[in-house]
Write a protein that binds this DNA or RNA. Structure first.
Lengths: 204, 204
DNA sequence: AATCAAAATTAACGATTTGTTCGTTATTTA
DNA sequence: TAAATAACGAACAAATCGTTAATTTTGATT
């Protein structure tokens, strides 16, 4: 909102952000103290309290800053659903974009996911979906079935995507964003059973 | 493993379990102190350290105890997949069983999910899936496509189910286990797009 | 019922962390 | 250059931590 005028403020906050990541790389978040953060950021401990309420406050703002950066810069808002029709190729492009952004910020996500910050990220991700994506789907809210299953399906898809990203970005010898995106899109459009090459006991 | 012989031990540990839940209902886990747990459980603070390493240890064991109870008692291990064929009705029964068990332990899950303990639960849930379910799928490991997409799909499905459970058990005026199970099975067998009543731009 | 082993209590300890205060110094902005 | 304000450094009481040791209480066993 308001521009952070003073250079000193920007410097302090940036240092604390980086200090948090560096420390979370080494040890569990719960064991990190304000003094350690101040040491790592090379600021006085009292200065920390001029900017953040506590370390949880710092973490939350840090995560939001990163996700805003990624979602707003790299994931361009496009309409991949029109009049009840899912445009697979557009959807594929969006997922690929997200995965590429994640890969660019590899270190951040690896640290966060290995520190079990999934929920913090997921909650804010869902918030962004509600703010950015859902308004674009207004023209299809007429469908009764969609309306009935809207909430549960959003939860389901976002949880699934976050789960995949968590697994993907923290696994060794991971495949490329395109390949993962292909699977994700396949699962969402045709279902996991189809992607796995299985068959169903009932035809319909 | 070994039976907890002494009544006093059982009593102390049970008191601490309940104290943890009671306190987590009122305040964030990060702000809970050992002294508070001891007070609530009506035991001495030193006694806590005779049983648990710290409060994270208590939380983890508490979660595992609950999930073991639920998964081993209520979710009977059945084979819902044979020779590459998914038996929809059996799968539906399993999901319903899980949701019913969650509903029986409503308070536990509400507290845990509202306290952002999803990951603790998810991780152990995935562990159980690997131990209990995957061995039963041994006869279909031959499929190349399955093997290639196995890990990612497990992450995807488990994440999705946990996400749905989280949303479901913490939402007001929630629907019954059967109805949710039907949606979940529908999503997994036919895909979210179908369940939402949408169409795809490409036929295949 | 009596005995023994184990669990829980009590009090105390030094060390660490916390959140806040103050007056002083350094830097930025205008 | 001058005024504003951010950061520093030191110090404070309060709370929490994890552990110790001696003592008391409890339960399981015979």
């Amino acid at each position: 909102m308001t521009k952070k005028q003073d250079l000193r403020v920007q410097r302090t906050r940036k240092s604390l952000n980086q200090a948090l990541l560096t420390l979370m790389e080494k040890k569990k978040f719960s064991t990190i103290t304000i003094q350690e953060l101040a040491n790592e950021a090379m600021i006085n401990r009292a200065t920390f309290y001029l900017h953040y309420y506590d370390k949880y406050d710092l973490l939350e703002i840090c995560v939001k800053d990163y996700l805003d950066e990624i979602m707003l810069k790299h994931v361009t808002p496009v309409r991949h659903i029109r009049e009840g029709v899912v445009y697979t190729d557009v959807f594929y492009a969006i997922v690929t974009d997200i995965l590429k952004s994640v890969e660019i910020n590899e270190r951040f996500f690896q640290i966060m996911f290995q520190s079990n910050c999934d929920n913090l990220i997921k909650d804010y991700f869902i918030e962004l979906v509600h703010d950015k994506f859902l308004p674009q789907l207004g023209d299809m809210f007429s469908g009764r079935q969609f309306e009935r299953h809207k909430n549960i399906t959003i939860q389901l898809i976002v949880s699934a995507i976050i789960g995949v990203i968590t697994w993907w970005i923290t696994s060794e010898d991971r495949e490329g964003p395109e390949e993962i995106a292909q699977i994700v899109v396949g699962v969402i459009t045709k279902g996991p059973v189809y992607v796995l090459g299985l068959k169903m006991s009932e035809p319909n």
